[in-house]
Design a protein around this nucleic acid. Sequence first.
DNA 1: CGGCAGGCGGTTA
DNA 2: TAACCGCCTGCC
Length: 314
Amino acid sequence: MKNLFVTYRRDSEKNPVYNIGPVRDFNADHVFDCGQCFRWRRLDDGSYTGIASGKIANVAYGDGQVRITGLFGTTEKTDVRDFWIDYLDLNRDYGKIKRRLKKDDPVMTSAIKEGKGIRILNQDLWETIVSFIISQNNNIPRIKGCIEGLARLAGDPIVGDKDEAYLVPKGNGRMGESVHGLYTLEGLQPYTIPSPEKLASMTVEDLAPVKLGYRAKYLIETAKTVCEKGLPGNMEELNALTGVGPKVANCIGLFGLGLTDSFPIDVWVARVMSKYYGFKEDDFDGMRAYAEEHFGEYSGFAQQYLFYHIRQNQ
DNA sequence: CGGCAGGCGGTTA
DNA sequence: TAACCGCCTGCC
């Protein structure tokens, strides 16, 4: 545990504002736009508002401090200390990780230069399972839309003891924001991702409005498995879930179980490994072996830097 | 402009 | 190895 200090004040509108520091290696765009999460939205001021584990916050970074505000549906002070600091992975030394990955690797060096503020979020396991089953063979705007739609259809409303929750930006016409709406509190209630019990009790017909396609039955099947056997605790149990193959299992392992040696290979990572490391685009075994040998316990971080790099330069 | 492939942060049978 | 939901983009 590093020595992070949390300071607290209220702004002119009486909102609680928490500043956490000293924190280096943090950039909100890098953190929330490197493909690991789907419920965060960028505001005009560069901050992000999102939902995780039924809690809502607005996160920004500046002057070596992470600013958390707009808390809602939470007990505030305790949540900053007990939830958000860990969720944002603020106790991890990314300088060490980056030095190790950059060593003798010009590709990682430039990838890290580009995504230097990436942090791997410690996300709720069940929410990660749901999110990444939905993500398969799907694109990001639609994934976001499906998750919001699922939450609204089957999740629990998130209620707070005050009115001033933070808002997401006005719709910009992109899918997932215009179709399913924004989770402002002015006219639209925010919802949690539904529990395993709730999903297990539903049918494919029930979920039809969310338009998950063939993924709906995977979700229900997996929910039933979790209700019966509990949440998965390792790669083997993840791979046994319906709708969870190698790529999705690695994503869940990395984001939901903290298995930092995971190396999810999606089309983009395959592309970057082919472009810069000389692999054939379908040589997943070769890529996995390379990651294991060269990135080792930091494979997950390497994957995030590479993913962000190729997405920025596509 | 309208219709129709091609593709998507893959997995299943 | 092809089929798969659904919705996007690009092409004609």
